[in-house]
């Protein structure tokens, strides 16, 4: 892939990106980052861990700067997180939680050569969706709503919690290569799990969930859409984030 140049089109237009907390009085632990080089990342911080929002922020910023996930890449991200806190001065309950770790998903997308190659990287249950018009052409890493019920494996600031990566071929198991070529109306969506579950649960419905999301063009419109779906019981109440390249 070294001969492929960054996407000129993406340079001129960043994708739309919106995020909303699970509730007005709750801290949003999702983070996203868009670079002008056609690299986009989002991360869903696990609520029940020490400081998942900071961990998610570090992951997306580092991925947007250097979209090459390796053991060294992860170690550097963990080291940056550890510098945020003086572990020895924390009271015991915070020290224990710090040691246990902060958890977050990471979904990164690299759009190369105007979509000739779209490289998707994912750990956890945030998903990327390749669309052609209102049709879903591919999803990664999950493809069925039932898969969201399982406990996802997430990146952690405690290295002992990342041993699952040792059993994976990072360049194969965590990556999908897609292309916009041959698609009449290509689009790429990245989203955290609540929205991913909503979309995959409705993939065969009319109006198409892709069409519904295409109408969302502002942060206010996104907030209204998410709140209506939550109120109707169709979407899980969770931090919810969308990156959309229409």
């Amino acid at each position: 892939m070294a001969n492929l140049r960054p996407d000129a089109r993406a340079k001129s237009r960043l994708p739309l990106a919106f995020s909303i907390a699970k509730a007005d009085d709750k801290h949003n632990e999702d983070r996203f980052h868009r670079s002008t080089k056609g690299v986009y990342a989002l991360s869903d911080g696990a609520s029940v861990s020490f400081d998942s929002a900071s961990w998610a922020r570090i992951l997306v910023r580092r991925y947007a700067q250097k979209p090459e996930f390796t053991r060294e890449w992860l170690a550097a991200a963990i080291a940056e997180f550890h510098k945020l806190y003086d572990r020895d001065s924390l009271p015991w309950m915070k020290q224990a939680s710090f040691d246990r770790g902060s958890f977050a998903s990471l979904l990164g997308v690299r759009v190369v050569d105007s979509g000739r190659l779209i490289q998707v990287f994912s750990v956890g249950d945030s998903i990327a969706v390749l669309c052609d018009g209102d049709r879903i052409k591919a999803t990664f890493p999950l493809s069925a709503p039932s898969e969201f019920g399982r406990s996802p494996q997430l990146l952690c600031t405690n290295p002992a919690q990342n041993v699952f990566l040792d059993k994976l071929d990072v360049g194969y198991d965590l990556v999908a290569d897609w292309t916009f070529r041959g698609l009449e109306q290509p689009a790429l969506l990245c989203m955290t799990d609540a929205l991913g579950h909503w979309l995959l649960s409705r993939r065969d419905e009319e109006p198409s969930p892709i069409n519904v999301l295409r109408e969302v063009r502002s942060a206010n419109a996104f907030a209204r859409f998410v709140q209506e779906e939550r109120a109707a019981g169709r979407m899980k109440r969770d931090d919810t984030t969308l990156i959309a390249l229409w």
Partner: peptide, 17 residues
């Protein structure tokens, strides 16, 4: 008890789960 407290602890305090 330590594990239960830890699972409720975040950087901003202990949450009453």
């Amino acid at each position: 008890l330590y594990t239960l407290v830890t699972s409720c602890s975040k950087s901003d305090g202990v949450r009453n789960y």
